[in-house]
Simulated assay, not measured.
Amino acid sequence: MAEYELIGEERTVLGSSATRRLRKTGKVPAILFGGEAEPIPFVLNQNEVKKHLENEAFASHILRVKVGDHNSQAVLKAVQRDPITSDVTHMDLQRVSASKEITMSVPLHFVNEDECPGARAGGIITHLLVEAEIRCLPRHLPEYLEVDMVSLELGETIHLSELSLPEGVNLTALMHGDDEDQTHDSALVSVQMPREEVEESDKDDVEGAELDDEVTKLVESGGEDSE
């Protein structure tokens, strides 16, 4: 598993004006919080942050954060971006403890789509979720969860409860309610017939039913309408 390290400088001047000046010089304001220590406001290099964020795994890793004399392990909790330039405008990082569980959202990787029987039969694959929220100890945090589509047939759907989870990992959605409660068992991916084919099939069924009705009426009337 790759390791990521963030090295920042502690902020001594706070406020919106100071924050704007930092951003103009290519810095990203950030906050390190959580645990028993006090929150630490600090700044990071914009280019280094962007480079890290290009890797999907960065958002679901335990990060090493160094700010002055402070060394912490943390996870990325939030990223704010400029809607026009896409520059990172702020980052929230939460400290983690090796002995305490954390709640994180991790990406879903859909595998064996080319082997999916439903898709080979002409079905359309629809991804309904792209990430799932999990709870685990930091050492068990996975980069992603796999959704195996090798046996997904036409008209079928894969749900959260069907995922194979790594050791020590739980899905937060399934930690609610009892085994009979299906409201939290979200659908992840499905394979369905194209809409055009479904509509054409329905049309054929209706026309066939109407023809059957006409034949039935003729039989019951003894064929009088045909004379």
Rank of each mutant, 00 (worst) to 15 (best):
M1R: 08
A2P: 11
A2F: 11
E3Q: 13
E3L: 11
E3C: 08
G8S: 06
T12V: 11
L14S: 15
R21P: 00
R23E: 08
R23W: 06
R23L: 08
T25E: 14
K27T: 04
A30S: 12
G34C: 01
G35W: 01
A37I: 05
I40P: 04
I40M: 03
P41Q: 07
N45W: 01
Q46Y: 00
V49F: 06
K50T: 00
H52W: 10
N55F: 11
S60P: 02
H61R: 11
L63W: 03
V65I: 10
V67K: 01
D69R: 07
D69H: 09
D69W: 05
A74G: 00
L76A: 03
L76W: 07
Q80L: 13
S86Y: 11
D87T: 04
T89A: 01
M91G: 00
D92E: 14
L93Q: 06
Q94K: 02
R95I: 05
S97Y: 11
A98P: 00
E101L: 03
T103P: 03
T103F: 02
S105A: 14
H109L: 12
H109R: 15
V111P: 07
N112D: 14
N112M: 03
E113Q: 15
D114P: 00
E115F: 12
C116E: 09
G118K: 05
G118C: 03
G122H: 01
I124R: 13
I125W: 08
L129R: 14
L129C: 07
V130F: 11
V130G: 07
A132S: 10
R135C: 06
R135D: 07
R135W: 02
R135H: 04
C136P: 02
C136R: 01
L137I: 04
R139Q: 13
H140C: 15
L145D: 09
E146F: 05
D148F: 07
D148G: 01
D148I: 04
S151N: 15
E153Q: 15
L154I: 02
G155Y: 08
H159P: 08
H159I: 04
H159M: 12
S161Y: 02
P166D: 08
N170G: 03
T172K: 05
M175H: 09
M175F: 00
H176C: 06
G177A: 08
G177E: 09
D179H: 06
T183D: 09
H184Q: 14
D185W: 10
S186I: 00
A187Q: 10
A187E: 13
L188Y: 01
Q192E: 13
V198P: 07
E199V: 14
E199T: 05
E200N: 12
E200C: 02
D202C: 05
K203V: 01
D204F: 12
E210G: 10
L211M: 13
T216K: 15
T216Y: 11
L218V: 07
E220N: 10
S221N: 13
S221C: 02
S221G: 01
E224R: 11
